[in-house]
């Protein structure tokens, strides 16, 4: 009985993230449009786009190989699995020990690895430019992310997200300089990883400035839909991660009870809304930077995270 319950909860989490992801994307778009005094697309537009794309024919580039066709599923699966493993409304889900935070980041790394390969498959210079910039960005974002994980893990004594969330929710944490630095770094990394402004612009198709979009330029139809969905999932994942680590309030503990779960779900949706709105405000307020400013931006995140690991001894409850 308990197993079925656990399964159900885990399944619910999977479905929840899958369903919430386009909504979050739509919400951010909507807020941004409003901030720019535009009407903006409806909240559900991303769902419609995805459905529309799903049903379209795929137009493959002449040179595209089997790998090109496999990659969208791979990327989607990896991102979905990763997103399902981040605690959203309840910690200690059935398979939460499958991958700790380091592994989750690595699973995302796998997705990006294959996406970058896909960019190079068609044999055009666009894919290449996108891939090469993507790996450059990730080569800085990934270590920064790992350093952030280190900071929190060194403080929390674990890389297991449920344990970390529980620890961050306890009184033991206190205010720490290093956690603050880690949060800033995490935001920077999240922005870069999700190809948001100021690192990349998800809405542009101006060839020389794009990174992520250049990489997936040759994708169409259902492949494109999966990649877009994976991108939304990834955004959701990062937002959930920030929420789970730095705003772990309301997450249901691993007990069999309905009320905390409902509270958890509500709190989760609330957190998504707040953080999504923040993201929209941030993106509206800032201009996109040149590609070669990005390393400095991410380098700052890396330095902040490194500083945070060194400073973790300095202030226990500051």
């Amino acid at each position: 009985m308990a197993v079925i319950y656990d399964f159900a909860l885990q399944g619910a989490q999977m479905l929840l993230v899958l369903l919430m992801a386009p909504l979050l994307t739509g919400f951010v778009r909507k807020v941004k449009a409003r901030l720019l005094s535009r009407q903006g697309p409806p909240l559900l537009q991303p769902y419609r786009d995805l459905l529309r794309l799903m049903c379209k024919d795929v137009v493959l580039a002449d040179n595209a190989s089997w790998l090109f066709r496999v990659i969208p599923y791979l990327v989607f699966a990896a991102t979905w699995v990763a997103a399902s493993l981040v605690p959203t409304f309840r910690s200690g889900l059935m398979f939460s020990w499958t991958a700790d935070l380091i592994a989750i980041i690595a699973v995302l790394g796998s997705a990006r690895f294959f996406l970058a390969l896909a960019g190079m498959d068609a044999g055009t210079s666009f894919g290449g430019i996108g891939s090469s910039r993507e790996v450059m960005i990730s080569s800085l974002a990934e270590p920064a992310m790992l350093m952030i994980v280190f900071v929190i893990a060194l403080i929390a004594g674990s890389t297991q997200l449920s344990t970390m969330a529980a620890f961050m929710n306890s009184a033991e944490v206190g205010l720490r300089v290093s956690l603050g630095l880690a949060l800033i770094a995490l935001v920077i990394v999240a922005v870069a990883e999700n190809a948001r402004i100021p690192v990349d612009n998800p809405a542009t198709h101006l060839e020389l400035t794009m990174v992520h979009e250049a990489m997936v330029l040759e994708y169409s139809g259902r492949h494109l839909a999966l990649i877009e969905l994976a991108a939304s999932l990834k955004l959701l994942l990062y937002v959930s991660l920030i929420a789970c680590l730095f705003a772990p309030w309301g997450i249901s503990p691993a007990i069999v009870a309905a009320v905390p779960i409902l509270i958890g779900v509500a709190a989760y949706i609330g957190k998504l809304g707040v953080l999504g709105a923040f993201l929209a405000v941030f993106e509206t307020a800032i201009a996109k930077m040149r590609v070669f400013r990005v390393p400095e931006f991410l380098g700052a995140a890396l330095m902040l995270a490194l500083l945070a690991t060194l400073l973790r001894f300095v202030s226990r409850s500051f």
């Binding site: 790394g109 990006r112 790996v135 974002a141 990934e142 270590p143 350093m147 490194l306 690991t309």
Partner: peptide, 23 residues
């Protein structure tokens, strides 16, 4: 931890390197 940062950096760069090699 500093060595950890170096290892993380090298792992990310390794991924870049092999995207390049295979691609």
């Amino acid at each position: 931890p500093a060595v950890g940062a170096l290892l993380a950096l090298s792992a990310a760069l390794a991924a870049a390197c092999f995207v390049r090699a295979f691609g």
